[in-house]
Simulated scan of single mutants.
Amino acid sequence: MTIAGKVALVTGAGQGIGRGIALRLARDGAAVALVDVKADKIEEVAGEIRALGRKATTFVADISDRDQVFAAVDHAEKELGGFDIMVNNAGISQVKPLADVTVEEVERIYRINVQGTLWGIQAAAAKFKARKQKGKIINASSIAGHEGYALLGVYSSTKFAVRALTQAAAKEYASDGINVNAYCPGVVGTDMWVDIDKRMSEVTGAPIGATYEKFVGGIALGRAETPDDVAAFVSYLAGPDSDYMTGQAPLIDGGLVYR
């Protein structure tokens, strides 16, 4: 069973995992609304989706702003003629010892990773209810949402929070026919991990690439994850084969963290 004819919105769709998810959902038959703070990036992805013969629309938004997230959902419905799937993918990382984290840094990462996810849940659920239909909400957590990591403590706490929001929303919206799940990637070969590795090097003195190689070396399947690996699982969560699944945050990490 597929998601052909469905309308999906993906935040953080301009690069990395978000781009991979948007393209996979399009290949599987969905029309896709691309949301990001970088207009040029999402326009490029929109072009790739249209080249596949699927509809795409773009909307520039800062997901930490509740009004902008609601406006993005309204835009998706208006431009693509419906609304069925919300992927709250956008997020940022932070590498710093807990003792050195500033008030401003904590506030920023929580505004984006936690509040941004909450606004996405609210906006999608409100739209599904207004349309009197079922829907899928899919949130980005992480292996760091299952296990706290040194020098990634505040980031880890945001991803634990995403799991909590996912569970609570699943319980609150189940009677409305809305499924809420999350995905928990591991070490994905994206710009975010390049940045994490660089910052780890600055803090620990390890050579550039050493932290990345250390984590990848612990993966049972023997390779780093790709955006396509994550996207394949998100497509499952978006489709009808996962209709009896809600409130879950499975690990999709190649065998790195086990729960």
Rank of each mutant, 00 (worst) to 15 (best):
G18T: 10
I178K: 10
A61L: 03
Y155A: 03
D253W: 05
G217R: 09
G120N: 03
K159P: 00
K171W: 06
T204M: 08
E147P: 10
F59L: 09
E44Y: 13
G16K: 09
R54P: 00
I112Y: 03
V216H: 09
A232P: 14
A249I: 06
G205N: 07
M200E: 01
Y244R: 15
G5F: 10
V180K: 15
G135V: 04
A220T: 12
A30E: 13
L23S: 03
P207C: 05
F59W: 13
Q115N: 05
Y236G: 12
S93E: 06
R66Y: 08
K41G: 05
G247M: 15
A130W: 08
G189F: 13
V87F: 03
V37C: 02
L151F: 12
D191M: 01
A150E: 12
A33N: 01
V101D: 14
A125W: 07
E202T: 07
M192S: 07
A174E: 01
G53A: 04
S175P: 08
E48I: 00
A220D: 14
L80I: 07
G16P: 14
I3A: 06
A140N: 12
D36N: 07
L52A: 09
G222Y: 12
I138R: 00
N179G: 07
G81K: 13
E213S: 13
A56Y: 00
T11I: 03
D228V: 10
R54A: 12
G189Y: 13
R27D: 01
V114Y: 01
A170E: 04
D228N: 14
W193A: 08
Q115C: 02
P207D: 02
V230P: 05
V162D: 00
V187G: 07
A90F: 06
